[in-house]
């Protein structure tokens, strides 16, 4: 069955609705809640479908409460969807949790799976037993992870004494101990400093490249996504907004580039009247422009500028993914950019 379809994750029309008793205020209200049949329904995820090929590294992004974690919980078998279907490694996760558990790794950035009271290495030994990892594979993985994540220096330190960065590195090694084919990362770099983030990103990229491990990454940090993922899936209010490459979303929803020009003289008199170019700001000898990448060639714009005054320096910047995505959240997909071709 799995041979016919080569997708490692298939999600079709996943929907999760949470049902809870409508709460009332105050002591009497709380008492009334106990006997109430007044339910409220919250649509956490609605009709989300996507497929992942083996070896993909996908950013699953959206604002707080968008339904990211709920989707991950359905894909990992923690939650049963209200409707819809999915398979991971050819298994329906919530129907066969133990079989599913052997093929996936999960890192929750906010919650460690390491055993707090004892040295890091003891957690690894427990995981070795839980997943039935052979001694040879265990030794090999530990050596590899120690190299990539620098675990050696704190392998014998009780987890409670580790810094957040060290603990996260330990958690990554723990999640990979059984060589899962698919790894789910839920906010893996939250609260980490630049050095620790970089170590984690390198680790993910290296495992992805060398072992072909598939990763789904949910994060608020779009730098993680830009550095690691070729593809993103964007959701908001529980619905999928976008699924495609980062390059494509930039081209489609961030059609403008920024140009900053510094002149040797005052820039007040500089005036550019070209279609597709807009002046954003003038500040003494500096001027900032926005131009449409499809309509205006950068070199023509620079030539036009240099005719007006002596240029000292020019920098051109791509739109930031964060800006584009914020615009999509604020204005919706259709009004954020040109219509799809």
């Amino acid at each position: 069955m799995a041979a016919a379809i080569n997708m490692i994750i298939q999600a079709s029309h996943l929907t999760k609705q949470f049902k809870s008793v409508r709460r009332k205020e105050g002591v009497l209200g709380t008492l009334a809640t106990l006997f109430s049949h007044d339910y409220e329904f919250k649509d956490a995820v609605t009709d989300v479908s996507f497929d992942l090929e083996p070896g993909e590294l996908v950013g699953y992004i959206g604002p707080n409460g968008a339904g990211k974690s709920t989707t991950i919980k359905m894909l990992t078998g923690i939650l049963v969807p209200t409707s819809g279907h999915c398979t991971v490694n050819g298994i329906v996760p919530w129907q066969d949790r133990q079989a599913n558990g052997r093929g996936i790794g999960v890192v929750f950035g906010q919650r460690t799976q390491l055993y707090w009271d004892l040295p890091l290495v003891e957690s690894f030994r427990l995981l070795k037993a839980i997943y039935g990892v052979s001694q040879a594979s265990y030794d090999r993985h530990l050596k590899k992870f120690s190299e990539l994540l620098g675990l050696d220096e704190f392998m014998r330190t009780p987890v409670r004494q580790l810094s957040l960065g060290q603990r996260m590195r330990g958690d990554f090694a723990a999640a990979m101990m059984h060589e899962p084919a698919v790894v789910f990362l839920d906010e893996p770099t939250i609260g980490l400093d630049v050095v620790a983030k970089e170590a984690i990103r390198n680790f993910i990229a290296s495992v992805n490249k060398e072992r072909g491990t598939t990763f789904i990454l949910t994060t608020h940090d779009l730098n993680d996504v830009e550095k690691l993922c070729a593809r993103i899936i964007l959701i908001d209010h529980g619905r999928k907004l976008y699924d495609g490459s980062i390059d494509a979303i930039k081209k489609r929803y961030g059609p403008n580039r920024l140009l900053t020009a510094d002149f040797l003289t005052d820039a007040a008199g500089v005036d550019i009247r070209m279609p597709g170019v807009a002046v954003l700001e003038r500040d003494g000898q500096r001027i900032r422009l926005e131009f449409e990448r499809e309509r205006v060639r950068a070199d023509e714009l620079i030539v036009a500028l240099s005719r007006q005054a002596d240029l000292k320096d020019v920098t051109i910047a791509e739109p930031e993914l964060e800006t584009i995505i914020r615009q999509i959240y604020e204005r919706g997909l259709d009004r954020s950019g040109p219509a799809p071709q």
């Binding site: 919980k73 990992t76 923690i78 949790r97 558990g101 999960v106 929750f108 919650r111 839980i130």
Partner: peptide, 8 residues
């Protein structure tokens, strides 16, 4: 949640 993603 963690207990549900392990093969035990």
């Amino acid at each position: 949640d963690r207990l549900l993603v392990r093969p035990l």
